[in-house]
Amino acid sequence: MTSQGAVTAADPGAAVTRRADARRVTGRSGGTGRPGRDRTRKRLEILFFVAPALALMALFVVYPVFSAARMSFYRWKGFGPMVDFVGLQNYVRVLADDVFTDAVVHNFIIVFASILVQLPLGLALALLLNRRIRGRGLLRTIIFVPYVLAEVIAGVVWFQLLQPRSGLLETMLTSVGFPVPEQGFLGTPDLALVTVFVVLTWKYLGLAVLLFLAGLQGVPDELHEAAQLDGASWWQVQRRIAVPLLAPTIRTWVFLSMIGSLQLFDMVWILTGGGPANATTTMATYLVSQGTQRSNFGIAGAASVVLFLIGFAMAVAYQFLVLRRDTKDA
């Protein structure tokens, strides 16, 4: 019975049936003779349930974002009223600033590198760990450890590991004759972003693995056993059964990863502060350094709006092109 529940959960057709049933239930309770009153009551209930969340989001998420947008049209140093209206001048300055356009490029490099590297790696590890090997539980625990650590804490440890010359990594590489860069991995402009990405992969691979493993557990043992009886090899089972059933989880992970990469801040701030020579700036580090260190609130506002628009466009596109499949009947 348990496994049957899991099959229906993984089968979109069954989910549609279930929703249709739910609709029938609602329909019946709405048909008891007082449709108007029931509708008002239903609206009040919905309002009651969503009001706290919407209020929090409105006050602490939406209002500040609009506020940032308003700020982007003024020259403002944070003191006194916002009166020096400059139109689109801040946007012109931001978009003409090589530091910012490079930051956008860095964000996109991280977005695509994450998908191209972490997805196959995470999938491979999840399939590996889903086998009945000894110590599997312990292995799962260990692989998730970096994700649980704060980015700051992981960053501080990696910063020590990556110290030029005296750090553990360079010492080990030198001892096996591997050439190390003169300025260290974080100090060399061409290598810094790659190094940050490696540390990010170390930090976030565990989440991908855990999500994929959870998805794989929705694949009932009976399916594996049936496939096995039919003479399917382990690889065939993974390719034809496990991975296709995992597709919704993969699509969700890609979405989360994309958004996380666009918002990258903590790790860069700790490891490089955006340097060397702005080689690792991201949109977030740019707007924080403009806003809080130089008090160019107008410039920070314009950069915020650009970051928001890029993220918004990517998310909407992804929602319509890819995720729509998962939610279209919802």
Partner: peptide, 12 residues
Amino acid sequence: GLLFPAAVAIVP
């Protein structure tokens, strides 16, 4: 809402 990084709104 997933898209509103704290960074976007940090100064306001």
